[in-house]
Design a protein around this nucleic acid. Structure first.
Lengths: 137, 137
DNA sequence: TTATAATTAACTTGATTAGTTATATTATAT
DNA sequence: ATATAATATAACTAATCAAGTTAATTATAA
């Protein structure tokens, strides 16, 4: 399951991407604009900083800005960064397929199903979402 | 996430499908052949009976048999019967999309990703798995 | 030097998953 | 008839994961 935290992270990045680059926006503003708890925004920004997607300036008149091209951040990357490896079944988390024949056949099906899903998440970037949302006005 | 119970159910159905129709096989045998706890086999068979996929004969020399054409049982159906509705995000479980523009754009992406995944699980049936496993010998 | 804002880590709570235990019911071989 | 082999149900437990909170620390502009 893709968690709400991953979804929030995507929304936060989209918010950042829809502001002029180099302009700063605070956690509180993001939280207010997108209706996410400030605590969560703060928690997620911390992970995004580690991923080198954002940088922050502390103190009054400080804030966050995006330092990675949003067209280079796919939804899949965000999800994997926040949630860890994606797997639609436990089977796909283990490296070695199991012995049982049915299970091995199944592994192939799971992999195909998952790859079909991931191809969509690979192709959509934060930039796409920001543009799409802007176009809705 | 597709649970192990759903995966076990698929394996159990495949086991049943790979025996001559109308022949009976006991829960214990299924459990032994597929290396699944008897308790779980019994628990899952109970759900499968409710779904009208299997019927059981009690008493000595009793057992379980498949009463639905395995080519008519898709992996998706099994998963939904055991795990309930499938959703790769919480968002897709709610009927009404949320207000926020980014989130609404996201919903479309989630839906597309999920449908890509489901199309695979719709197309593969228990019969396919049983045949594939038989061919491996 | 003080208020403001980012950063970081640890913690709580609730839901879900995986599997077990216990008990009831039924059919049949002897 | 009755013990037994089997299915059928329900309730329970332990472990893991998701979601969100709390609190302490660090940097900086005014």
């Amino acid at each position: 399951m893709i968690t709400k935290k991953a979804e929030y992270a995507i929304i936060i990045l989209t918010e950042l991407a829809s502001h002029p680059s180099d302009s700063l926006i605070t956690s509180k503003e993001i939280a207010r604009n997108r209706e996410i708890s400030v605590n969560l925004v703060v928690q997620l920004l911390s992970i995004m900083k580690e991923a080198n997607w954002t940088s922050g300036t502390r103190g009054p008149s400080g804030g966050i800005k995006l330092i990675t091209d949003p067209s280079k951040i796919s939804l899949r990357k965000v999800i994997e960064t926040i949630d860890g490896p994606i797997g639609i079944t436990r089977c796909l988390f283990s490296n070695t397929p199991c012995q049982n024949k049915t299970q091995c056949s199944l592994r192939g099906v799971w992999a195909k199903a998952q790859n079909n899903m991931l191809s969509v998440l690979d192709e959509v970037s934060i930039k796409d979402l920001a543009e799409q949302a802007a176009g809705d006005f």
